[in-house]
């Protein structure tokens, strides 16, 4: 039997909102350490890696490892039926072909359950090595979302150039060109609002704005976002989910033909 109960049910609502536009279906791999999900978008240039640790749930039971293939649009529709303050429980019998979501209102007066058919997905799994990146940028997630939204009006690609002075986001297109420079925050009094850059060597890479705007759907999950870059490898955009895990997006850089 698998059962995962989360008092902060809004986390699961936000997680689905953060991945349902990029992925159509994915497998939730559950074991006693928690829930992992890894899937590429249809074009295979971006990937989502979600981790929700068992110890972040208010109750977590996983008698046998279980992989549940789900249509993410359906899951998003079900989770839209949960209130922001509801407790959400996900449960499934061993080798079941359905999963049940139970929503309990804070005063326990309303309990809803939604049963959904599981899918047989044989999605390939990529091995992503732990990597030391040349540049990592920690910044307010709302700031990053704003930059992606603003610059994507100027062109379908964004150049991210990181040096020890700071990070520059640029885009050019028919209407002109745009540059946004963020300097490293000097006095870090409020960590959440700081721009913190760790740079071993400068990196400049180009990415498709469309995917970056999909990634920023995760903004409500974390006040900060971390960008990790090295020459000629995919960008990593990470949103930490407090006390339970993270959601990481990977995006292949655009390279000259």
């Amino acid at each position: 039997m698998f059962e995962a109960r989360l008092l902060r049910g809004s986390i699961l609502k936000k997680v689905l909102e953060a991945i349902k536009d990029l992925l159509t279906q994915a497998t939730f791999d559950c074991d006693d350490s928690g829930i992992q999900l890894q899937a590429m978008d249809n074009s295979h240039v971006s990937l989502v890696s979600l981790q929700l640790r068992a110890d972040g749930f208010d109750k977590y039971r996983c008698d046998r490892n279980i992989s549940m293939g789900m249509n993410l649009n359906s899951v998003a529709k079900i989770l839209k039926c949960a209130g922001d303050k509801d407790t959400v429980t996900m449960k499934a019998q061993d080798n079941a072909d359905t999963v049940t979501f139970v929503f309990e209102s804070p005063n326990q007066e309303k309990v809803s359950d939604y049963e959904m058919k599981l899918m047989n997905l044989d999605l390939e799994h990529l091995g992503i090595p732990e990597t030391e990146y040349s540049c990592t940028i920690r910044m307010p997630s709302a700031e990053f979302a704003r930059i992606c939204r603003d610059l994507s009006q100027f062109g379908d690609s964004m150049v991210i150039a990181c040096t020890k002075e700071g990070v520059k986001f640029s885009a050019t297109g028919e209407i002109g060109s745009a540059n946004i420079k963020l300097a490293q925050t000097a006095s870090v009094d409020k960590e959440e609002e700081a721009v913190i850059i760790e740079m071993d060597e400068p990196v400049t890479l180009t990415f498709a704005c469309q995917y970056l705007n999909y990634f920023t759907k995760a903004t409500s999950l974390s006040p900060q976002v971390q960008l990790s870059m090295s020459a000629d490898v995919p960008l990593v955009v990470e949103y930490r989910i407090q006390d339970i895990g993270h959601i990481r997006y990977y995006l292949a850089p655009k390279i000259e033909d």
Partner: peptide
């Protein structure tokens, strides 16, 4: 023009 590699170019399929 530019292109993007599929992520299998960067990460090993397990």
């Amino acid at each position: 023009a530019t292109h993007q590699h599929c992520l299998r170019v960067y990460y090993q399929v397990q």
